[in-house]
Nucleic acid binder design. Sequence first.
DNA 1: CGGCGCAAAATGGTATACCACGGGCGGCAG
DNA 2: CTGCCGCCCGTGGTATACCATTTTGCGCCG
Lengths: 228, 228
Amino acid sequence: MTETVLAEQIATRLRRDILRGTLPPGAPIKERDNASDLGVSRTPMREAIRILAKEGLVELRPSRSPIVARPNVKDLADQTLVLIALEKLSAELACTAATGADLDRIAGILATMADRFAETDPLDMFEIDMSFHTAIAEASHNRALAETHRAFLQRLWHARFLAARQKRARDRVLQEHGRILDALRARDPVAARMAIERHLGHLADDIRRVVATETPGKDTTTNKGDAT
Amino acid sequence: MTETVLAEQIATRLRRDILRGTLPPGAPIKERDNASDLGVSRTPMREAIRILAKEGLVELRPSRSPIVARPNVKDLADQTLVLIALEKLSAELACTAATGADLDRIAGILATMADRFAETDPLDMFEIDMSFHTAIAEASHNRALAETHRAFLQRLWHARFLAARQKRARDRVLQEHGRILDALRARDPVAARMAIERHLGHLADDIRRVVATETPGKDTTTNKGDAT
DNA sequence: CGGCGCAAAATGGTATACCACGGGCGGCAG
DNA sequence: CTGCCGCCCGTGGTATACCATTTTGCGCCG
């Protein structure tokens, strides 16, 4: 055994490919092909696919090739609403549960963002941005919440990235993040919720807009992707 | 193939066994044994175990037998908080999104509960209760939300059942459910959230209490279960 | 010339065989 | 007698072979 959990390594790799766009939505993930491509057997590949399916990145059809998820606009907007709700709860709970170290970590991420907002490539910067939100979820010290939050962040990765690239307003983002941190430091749940709302409130609309822009017609059925 | 997705059937069965308590927390789920018990091979059994693991019903340890999840009190309380948040969001969204048919369905469940509260056995009644909440989540017409909500309801099944059995106050439950329905009918998001809060607000504490009562010491290690 | 049907290939679902790690137990040495 | 070392067995991880279904294309019949 290499390091145990081959399936998870595969899942990680596939996830990356999907999120980065290497595997376009609609692309079929055939167990056999992908397995032999990676030089592994179907069993772990199969398991990896199931993992991604649970995460919503892959669509499982009965007795048919799984395909890369092709979320429609509504689904994305729906997921965004849930994400926001989770993040509000995170912030609220973090006001009580967060330790000093938690807050420091969050502040550190904020500082990192401020420092090299311009010089870092958007993709990496975006990952830092996500880690900010993840850190808040973790500061709630509520495992279930943090995990669920992470799952939604994952599922929305691509859409959020597009939305963020659209209006890449350095100052606004930093300021909003700062407000969130302030609220957490003040241990003020209401303010924290509001700060989150201010930061993410329009996310659903943004995603709706950018995805609508990206997709030519009104449905994504047109996307006939082929990965190989 | 019988009806496709053997793994799912197994998962359903195992889930039932776990939720009903046939498989006590801490009981090992050995791939080989359970597979041969059910007359299937390890592959679907393995997949079923992974499904349940993702649902939080089974604990996966590296290179060791998976065991039935043994959630501690804090985890349950944490999950409850998330569940409540999700349900509030459901109710809020349902105020806008629910159709007349949705409301009728919810009302129907409420009526069913009222009719045969006493005559039905607690387990079935509890499932009806759960379906009430599930119906609200579905009335939000937000797939991601409904699914996540269902997942948490699932994970909390056992604890909620214990808590519900504890204070089995027919009138109070019906009244609170009625208030929720009223708020939905009035399309009043704020009232809906409040009604949910009133209904579930003390759930975390209840669960904490009943679980603390159930577990003698501070750990459940004493439970040495055997399924067969 | 087109529609229906059958057959073969493709593909996911399932079963089984093999491998590597880990813990328990017994033997050997100090 | 005790402690350490090594072997064996139990268990999960992986690979592969087999089976059922679905799809698709070709040929036959209308």
